[in-house]
Design a protein around this nucleic acid. Structure first.
Lengths: 183, 183
DNA sequence: ACCTGAACACCGTTCAAGT
DNA sequence: ACCTGAACACCGTTCAAGT
């Protein structure tokens, strides 16, 4: 990459990170280019789609979540490992406001730049679930796709301002359903 | 209302109903006006906000849901009454693609034209829940707000194309959580 | 090779001007 | 009293023209 291009690329990423943090993942592409003092075309040249930008920005976070899942595979308590990871995912989507919608589209669109990251997350969750099920610590009649739906639904709720106060309560309800705990 | 205004109003409603059905509740206001062969200003004059239009279009459906809830209050099986009504709500939001987002905003915005309808639904659900709880048929540690969140989350899932195949399965999982059924 | 920004096709919403 | 649609301030995305 040419030096000027590299500089634009890096600067764009830095600015995008800040702007996404402040405005959410659905901020306008124009706004990002504007804040970076760069033509819109330059933004699109480096990141042909919003998903490509999000993927680049969040790659390390996705890697962290995958690594965390892998580490938790060796955790003694298979149920607590699963729950801890679910909480991490929800925390992640909550930190990155607006990321859920593109992720939900990406999971069924193999051409999306976010597709692989989503598939990895889903697989990691499924694996943790299977392990908990093998240990008899999670309900057996649940598969990875259903688990993903439940997490996505909780993540969506968490994005609703009205719901904020009940966030932890509902997480624990769903958690107990997954683990099949009676209280 | 003047005769020409009345005619525009009625025509606008008829066209909006058709267009919303085809395109979803987030269709552009411009498109509605265009399809109705009317200036945008005329649409805004009759319906100052998208919520006002939606409220008018769906008023009878909201009334039906409220009436249904009232009728179910006298149903012998308090648990089945609650579940049947939940299914109705989810069916309603699914029939009217795109209605969930404005409803979620409306419930915390007293100025929204949809606010009252949402509050009524929430209250109706809470009442059916209390009745089921009194009969010992629903878990006691759940309140109306939490129930509303759970329904909203299921309704949201149902709007996700990827989730379609698991829709009924997840409904039954959440249903059993609410009723606290062990299988 | 890369950048720019005008251009195109859209929005939501308002409001002066017309009937 | 009501209707119209241009006007304003935005979008996403592309691509000819410039460096």
């Amino acid at each position: 990459m040419r030096a000027d291009a590299r500089k634009n690329y890096d600067h764009l990423l830095a600015v995008a990170q800040k702007v996404l943090q402040e405005q959410g993942a659905d901020v306008s592409m124009r706004d990002i280019a504007r804040q970076a003092d760069v033509g819109v075309g330059t933004l699109y040249r480096h990141f042909p789609t919003r998903e490509a930008l999000l993927e680049t920005l969040l790659r390390s976070s996705f890697d962290d979540l995958a690594a965390k899942a892998a580490a938790l595979e060796n955790d003694a308590a298979a149920d607590q490992a699963l729950v801890a990871w679910l909480a991490d995912i929800i925390g992640f989507t909550h930190e990155h406001r607006g990321i859920l919608a593109p992720m939900m589209s990406a999971i069924e669109d193999p051409d999306s730049a976010l597709h692989d990251a989503c598939v990895r997350l889903k697989a990691a969750g499924a694996s943790l679930l299977r392990r908990a099920q093998s240990a008899g610590l999670a309900r057996a009649d649940l598969d990875g796709a259903e688990l993903f739906d439940l997490i996505a639904a909780l993540a969506w709720l968490r994005e609703q301002p009205a719901h904020a106060a009940r966030s932890e309560r509902l997480f624990s309800i769903v958690r107990d359903t997954i683990l099949r705990v009676d209280r």
